[in-house]
Design a protein around this nucleic acid. Structure first.
Lengths: 222, 222
DNA sequence: ATGGCGGTTCACATTCCGTTCACACATGTG
DNA sequence: CACATGTGTGAACGGAATGTGAACCGCCAT
């Protein structure tokens, strides 16, 4: 949840970049009305333009007494004095202008403090999901068990959808530059990947004859 | 308590201006020796010059497990990435160079927070309970006797469920210093942990071949 | 000293999977 | 259709990664 509405562009952009979905609200009434089904995950209130309205929002959030919903307050350096005696209104604050990475670090730390999970790094393509932190893979909701090399190969392919790679390129990018060995190794791994993806999704990895392999985005259908 | 010794002049000056008495220490040993009769009120650790030593200090402060001694970490913007996976080492952070009034506001807010216990004192995962204050561990109600290193390793793993860590990452985050050889040490500790967790819960720690180890969150969930 | 404790290291056993091969099949070309 | 070239398929080998037991070593307290 962001305040004010519309949200400051640099704030919206930083959150988008970090992959955090958000909605901006104009006042506490709108905050209650626009609440998503699973509730707000947190709030970022910018007090730059309208400090009084901002503190009103903070009070409203606190009054509902959610289990320590993390609340980050954005203020300019000149407003630091306004924080006096208002410690209870926010969990953390940050000076504007801010660096996007500072925002991300503060959001992460706030979520960590309140015990809420932080967003995992995912690669998604259609029905396929790769969780880069847990090394898990799933297709249409069903987890599949991949070996290390299979996972690395699929990860590389899936992060460049549509692009065709020669076997040599795959060997150097996935296996490592110093690798030298048969190029057919790639074929075998592709075969096993297709088998584990299941008959329905085996065509996610496409063969480009006398060139190599590509992932998703059937090259003909554009 | 300030780190390093001597403390950065602008930091010392800002604290003097705010009327906070302080003493700077060069390492964790000095921090123990110079402790005032009524204990440290808080710590400000500057990681600008020597990040590794700074994190070592943080760990030492945390290890003594004072009742939520607030710890403020100072880092440069370029070091923001170093905070990854180290949320437990600090209560708040601030970018350098800083405005004296931001420092004062953060210190105030930290002291205000101190009264209201925000740091988790328990880690629970399924049948496993880790009491961070008493260094006790229990599985399905039965206490288990863990050595210090075993406890630290389990604590780190259990506070990031599902995430896979390489042996090198574990060595640097749990053991805390750069390690020459002997990554297999991790294996041995994992083995003993599994043994102490009991046959039924040994699978709480999973090995991810060619990568490392992860905790909980059986592979069938994304 | 010494005996236990805990952390580290080593040697060996075991499992797993990356690689390779041989062959079948598919595709393109004359 | 014959041929060459490229790719799919199954199985087998070998080695790397991990599990396992035991020894080593520094530390502290009895």
């Amino acid at each position: 949840m962001l305040f004010p509405d519309p949200a400051p562009p640099e704030l919206a952009q930083a959150l988008d970049l970090g992959g955090y979905p958000w909605k901006s609200v104009g006042d506490e009434v709108a905050a209650d009305g626009d609440e998503p089904p699973d509730g707000w995950a947190g709030a970022i209130v910018c007090a730059d333009a309208n400090p009084e309205a901002a503190f009103a929002i903070c009070r409203a959030v606190r009054k509902r007494d959610l289990p320590l919903e993390p609340l980050l307050l954005l203020i300019s350096g000149a407003q630091l004095g306004d924080l006096e005696l208002r410690d209870d209104l926010f969990d953390d604050f940050m000076l504007t202008p801010f660096h996007p990475r500072e925002l991300e670090a503060r959001v992460k730390h706030l979520f960590w403090r309140t015990g809420r999970g932080t967003r995992p790094e995912l690669i998604e393509y259609g029905e396929l999901i790769l969780n880069l932190e847990t090394y898990q893979a799933a297709i249409s909701g069903h987890p599949i068990d991949l070996t290390y090399m299979e996972y690395e190969l699929l990860k590389f392919l899936a992060s460049h959808p549509g692009k065709v790679f020669t076997r040599e390129t795959l060997l150097s990018r996935v296996w490592g530059y110093e690798y030298y060995g048969g190029a057919r190794t790639v074929d075998v791994h592709v075969r096993r990947l297709r088998a584990k993806l299941g008959e329905e999704h085996a065509n996610l990895i496409q063969t480009v004859r006398s060139v190599g392999y590509s992932f998703g985005q059937s090259r003909w259908s554009i």
